[in-house]
């Protein structure tokens, strides 16, 4: 009976999640009348708008990852090393972006940094890019912090720090040569999650009016028939590739350690 229930739930899940995917993929292949073809995909990939927005979002994702790592790794390290009692508080703060809608954050940004403010970031394209990147860093914060903090738990942060200090190392050397390399796998997991989030993000990019991949998908979806599902499949594949890469690096690192 229990087994039956488990199977029933599993089959329901498959039907609920996989069927729409199959339907969508099937539809995206039907651009040419009567036969299956990749026409819709070629069309999407050849679209200069696609290339431009996709490149833009990749650049922003990389910037987001870089800034995220530079903020999160030292913070999580410092909290673990010097103020472990503040960990619950810091964790709570990093979880806030999950509770506060992106639209609230972005309206806050627009109010704070509009053209008549002290720091008129929205006044220029580059300034707005910075603002958007910061927004993305915020969105990715919960995932990045969790990953890194979990990674730090696997090493003896305190003793390794002291060992490095007694060998003459300063903070930059300790973070760069001792801490970061030892949480690299965790950082990579966080990075791939961040990448997946940024590539698909719509709200912030649309409200700040930047040519990102998310708004492009939305515009395309409103105006075409076959290309949007093709695009959705591509976006979906990217997300899953990121998840797969997380699995891969984690598995690989575990394998390396276990070889002893």
């Amino acid at each position: 009976m229990k087994k039956f229930a488990a199977w029933a739930i599993f089959i329901f899940g498959v039907v609920y999640f996989v069927l729409p995917l199959i339907g969508m993929t099937e539809f995206s292949l039907k651009m040419r009348r009567g036969v299956y073809s990749f026409d819709a995909y070629f069309k999407v990939l050849a679209d200069p708008q696609f290339q431009a927005t996709f490149t833009y979002s990749i650049m922003l994702a990389l910037a987001t990852i870089l800034i995220g790592v530079l903020i999160v790794v030292p913070t999580a390290y410092w909290v673990r090393l010097k103020v472990p009692e503040a960990r619950p508080l810091v964790e709570f703060i990093t979880l806030l972006p999950l509770v506060i809608p992106a639209i609230v954050i972005v309206f806050g940004y627009i109010r704070m940094y509009n053209t008549s403010s002290v720091l008129p970031l929205t006044g220029s394209a580059f300034g707005t890019d910075i603002l958007l990147t910061m927004g993305y860093v915020t969105l990715a914060l919960p995932y990045m912090y969790r990953s890194v903090d979990t990674g730090l738990r696997t090493i003896d942060v305190g003793t390794l720090t002291e060992a490095a200090q007694s060998l003459g190392a300063g903070w930059v050397t300790i973070l760069g040569r001792v801490i970061l390399p030892n949480v690299l796998v965790a950082v990579l997991s966080g990075a791939f999650l961040t990448f997946a989030i940024v590539i698909g993000e719509f709200t912030m990019a649309a409200l700040l009016n930047r040519p990102a991949f998310g708004p492009y998908m939305q515009i395309l979806g409103a105006n075409r028939a076959y290309e949007p599902p093709a695009l959705a499949v591509i976006a979906f594949a990217i997300t899953w590739a990121c998840m797969g890469l997380i699995q891969l690096v984690t598995r690989f690192a575990g394998h390396e350690r276990a070889k002893a």
Partner: peptide, 15 residues
Amino acid sequence: NQRNVGMVFQAYALF
């Protein structure tokens, strides 16, 4: 890191 003192820990603490 300014003291030039070598330290060995119970838990080895190799990188």
